[in-house]
Design a protein around this nucleic acid. Structure first.
Length: 197
DNA sequence: CCCTGATTCGC
DNA sequence: GCGAATCAGG
């Protein structure tokens, strides 16, 4: 495969959308993420500017490196380019607090009793609960068959009803759950003890 | 281990 | 120009 105009265009688009190099490579096909990264650099657009970071995009603090070699892209073509936004970081969305808790309880504590060993609500930190209810909106709602080794296996809802699904978000490395669900699934013994009774 | 982008360097 | 290998980091 070679870098046709089309492919380069798609690359540019996806890259500016915050897609990872591997995702782009997958989409393009016939290339590795290395190839994509290499191309990105050759195109001189390693600095992702102009688009809001999407989902799992890496947060690049952008080091203030006083590069002695300033890239002066002679672009006579277009009259003027409204140079990329000076990078305005949107706030990382403050985690909802108390009001979300009741909703969270409903979400993870169904009616039934013989459910998987989900921790009882009163043992989970409010922060973690809020986080869970927060991300469960974005859950991929996978079925049992759709689960893979890299999808969060946190069950939601009552298995006895059709309102049951698995989180399905990307798991935290090593763990069976996504970050938020790891937060309620794995707790330091000390924390449990302190909260107990 | 899974992933991310960055860099190097033979081709 | 290309991209595998490697590096550095999460």
């Amino acid at each position: 495969m070679s870098w046709t105009d089309e492919r380069v265009e798609l690359l540019k688009k996806m890259w500016s959308e915050g897609q990872s190099a591997s995702q782009i490579a997958k989409e393009l096909g016939g290339v590795t993420r290395n190839a994509v990264i290499g191309k990105v650099h050759r195109l001189g657009l390693s600095n992702r500017a102009g688009a809001a970071p999407a989902a799992q995009a890496e947060a690049k603090p952008a080091e203030p490196k006083p590069q002695p070699k300033a890239k002066a892209p002679p672009k006579p073509a277009a009259a003027n380019k409204p140079d990329p936004a000076p990078e305005a970081k949107p706030q990382p969305t403050a985690v909802a607090t108390t009001p979300a808790i009741s909703a969270a309880r409903k979400a993870i504590i169904p009616a039934g009793q013989p459910l998987p060993p989900q921790p009882s609500t009163n043992e989970i930190s409010p922060e973690a609960l809020a986080k869970v209810s927060e991300i469960e909106k974005k859950a991929k709602r996978l079925t049992l068959m759709e689960l893979t080794e890299r999808t969060c296996k946190w069950p939601v809802g009552d298995p006895a009803t059709d309102d049951f699904w698995f989180c399905g978000l990307p798991v935290q490395q090593g763990k069976p759950y996504c970050e938020a669900h790891v937060g309620v699934a794995f707790q330091p013994m000390s924390a449990r003890r302190d909260r107990r009774r």
